[in-house]
Amino acid sequence: MTKVSADPTNRKTSLSAFMRKVYLAWALTFLYQPAYGATALGQTRLTEMRTAYSAVSAGIGTLWLAHEDGFFKKHGLESSLIYIRGGTTAVQALLAGEIHFGHLSPAPLLTAWAQGADFVWLGTTTHQMVFTLFADPATTRGSELKGKRIGITRLGSASDLAVRMALEHFGLHPKDITFISVGGIPEILAAMRAGAINAGILSPPTSSAARDLGFRPLLHIPDLGKQFTFSGIATKRSFVQSQPETIRAYMAALSGSAKIYKEDHRAALRILRRYMRADDRILESGYREYDKALSSPPYPGLEGLEAVRASLLDSTPQLRNVDLRKFVDDRFVRSH
């Protein structure tokens, strides 16, 4: 039988040693217990964010660079990028909550917003419409497009709006031609090569490939001299209200990448090579077409959005009397 000491000093010493062990165990448990928003060893837990983009062109480079070069991670975000053909389809995914952000044309977003959708425009990454209308070699003037088939990505998309602007410039009406929804910009060129359409609206670098193949450029849309918000970042206003710090972090990351993408030619081409299957000559040509249109920082100006609204009034008359300032939230870019 074990003998218990009656010496109070020995008992006190044993109790103190026991309590030290209990305290040490408790302290270690607390130290290695992950807190909210953090993992073990003090590492920050990244907030997962899904962003969709609806075109494969040099205009998406700001988003790609933010993802690839760690700008999102620097601001505590784990980013996933998802390509969805056509802005209208991506808008539906955003509305359904399948993605957190969309790098999109504002046109389908404005249309849905005017009809009650919970969208908000956070930043403009490209403030000019960088499209060129190409036709088969036999077509020498824009007026000759009457009765022809013209390829776009989707009805209501930026490519659709660009064709309508070109038709107005040529003195034609949308009813004078047939719109063919193809799905994506590279697919428009493929349809032109196959003879399925007579003309198509293209953006870099696909436009460079079209020139090499002998297709005739009829109109470079920026030559119309119109301010036009071409692409940017949108989300749901309810998401902004519930997670403003996440929005702030996201736009801070995008602002940082926008500066690098616009000013560092080598970094831009490195990113474009990763996402686009084209040789350097085509990539450089496309990047040059976008260079002046890139926004840094990506401030969501109203002037370009007003031009988008004006182009949508025939199809979406609800936009006529709305206040576009309610569609825009610029505080997350202004704060950087």
Score class of each variant (00 low, 15 high):
3 K>Q: 15
5 S>L: 08
5 S>P: 11
6 A>N: 14
8 P>F: 10
12 K>Y: 12
13 T>W: 07
16 S>G: 09
20 R>K: 12
20 R>G: 09
20 R>C: 12
21 K>D: 12
22 V>C: 06
23 Y>R: 15
25 A>L: 07
25 A>G: 09
27 A>F: 10
28 L>G: 14
28 L>Q: 13
30 F>R: 11
30 F>Y: 15
31 L>V: 11
31 L>F: 09
32 Y>N: 10
32 Y>G: 11
33 Q>I: 11
33 Q>V: 13
34 P>V: 04
38 A>P: 04
39 T>Y: 10
43 Q>Y: 12
43 Q>V: 14
48 E>L: 10
50 R>V: 11
50 R>C: 02
50 R>D: 07
51 T>Y: 05
51 T>R: 03
52 A>G: 05
53 Y>E: 03
54 S>K: 05
57 S>W: 04
57 S>K: 07
57 S>H: 12
58 A>K: 03
58 A>T: 14
65 L>S: 04
65 L>C: 03
65 L>A: 07
65 L>T: 03
68 E>Y: 10
68 E>K: 14
69 D>L: 09
72 F>W: 11
72 F>E: 01
73 K>E: 10
73 K>P: 02
82 I>A: 08
83 Y>I: 06
84 I>L: 12
85 R>A: 12
85 R>W: 05
86 G>F: 10
86 G>W: 10
87 G>N: 12
89 T>D: 06
92 Q>R: 09
93 A>K: 04
95 L>T: 04
96 A>N: 06
96 A>C: 05
97 G>T: 07
99 I>C: 05
99 I>Q: 03
103 H>E: 12
103 H>V: 06
104 L>F: 01
105 S>N: 10
105 S>L: 00
106 P>V: 00
107 A>Y: 02
108 P>D: 04
108 P>Y: 02
108 P>H: 01
109 L>D: 00
112 A>Y: 00
113 W>P: 01
113 W>R: 05
114 A>C: 06
116 G>T: 00
116 G>S: 06
118 D>L: 02
119 F>W: 02
124 T>H: 03
128 Q>M: 09
129 M>P: 06
136 D>Q: 13
140 T>W: 12
141 R>W: 02
